[in-house]
Write a protein that binds this DNA or RNA. Structure first.
Length: 255
DNA sequence: ATGGCCTGCAACGCAGGA
């Protein structure tokens, strides 16, 4: 079984790439972030034609999340009950005996901004939310654009980024809180090449220079982590015409 | 390669991303 996550940075623009990627990689469950589409405009027909059930929770211009699954989906739950929010950033669904949570964590913009304070409040609420989810669902996968580079090795230039948003101690502490609930960062269950990232700025030739961050994650509860056989980032998808600035992350489970 | 990020909006510059 393949689980995946991808910030598509506008599903409207990225739909051709998404359909090609589904055909090439055939994930069983995929979480999307930054669809940037109102629900009436969601391309449900095209995705259904590709063989996927789809649940979506979107808004115009900003945010927006979706879950695609080859198998039937149940108990779809938008948002976090602990954190009423106009931003559409959270969607959860059950596929078989797996609970799949798709997060689009706030960016935070800069440590001086109100958006950073919002991000910290959001992360606190997410900890409470995940504590309940993992208690209720032993086989839990939490995926998404987490907008936190967990450690310096997830940053191309740690000195440049030190103390900046995505790398602050407070954000990293929240990520460690999630690991403290028992979740495993699937990517770090395996030996990985140095300087493997999931996001590269569109500017300054950041991708060819590999000036990136690893801010997209798949986190697995112990029961699922025990079945995980690989986790990799598909940097090929960052190449070519009109790529998203994020690459997909894929975890394989022996299920 | 003589460039300089991308997307959506109701725009004709701006907000937001990270």
């Amino acid at each position: 079984m393949k689980l995946a996550t991808w910030n598509v940075n506008s599903l409207n623009v990225r739909l051709p790439r998404l359909l090609a990627w589904l055909a090439a990689h055939q994930p069983d469950i995929l979480g999307l972030q930054e669809t940037k589409l109102d629900d009436p405009r969601f391309p449900a027909m095209e995705i259904a034609a590709a063989g996927y059930q789809v649940s979506f929770y979107g808004q115009k211009t900003y945010n927006g999340v979706a879950i695609l699954s080859r198998a039937p989906v149940a108990d779809v739950a938008p948002g976090m009950p602990q954190f009423p929010d106009d931003h559409k950033r959270v969607l959860a669904a059950t596929v078989g005996d797996i609970r799949f949570v798709c997060f689009y964590v706030p960016n935070g913009q800069s440590v001086e901004s109100d958006k950073y304070q919002y991000k910290l409040r959001w992360l606190d609420a997410a900890t409470a939310y995940l504590r309940e989810e993992i208690a209720r669902h032993p086989r839990l996968a939490v995926v998404g654009d987490i907008n936190i580079a967990p450690e310096d090795r997830d940053v191309h230039d740690p000195d440049l980024w030190r103390g900046q948003v995505l790398c602050t101690d407070a954000e990293r502490a929240a990520f460690r809180d999630w690991l403290g609930l028992g979740l495993k960062d699937a990517f770090r269950l395996f030996e990985q090449p140095d300087k493997t990232f999931s996001w590269w700025d569109y500017r300054q030739l950041a991708f060819p220079k590999n000036q990136g961050l690893r801010i997209d994650q798949i986190m697995l509860s112990p029961a699922l982590a025990a079945t995980c056989t690989s986790c990799r980032i598909d940097r090929q998808e960052r190449k070519g015409e009109k790529p998203s600035d994020h690459a997909p992350v894929v975890a394989e489970l022996a299920l």
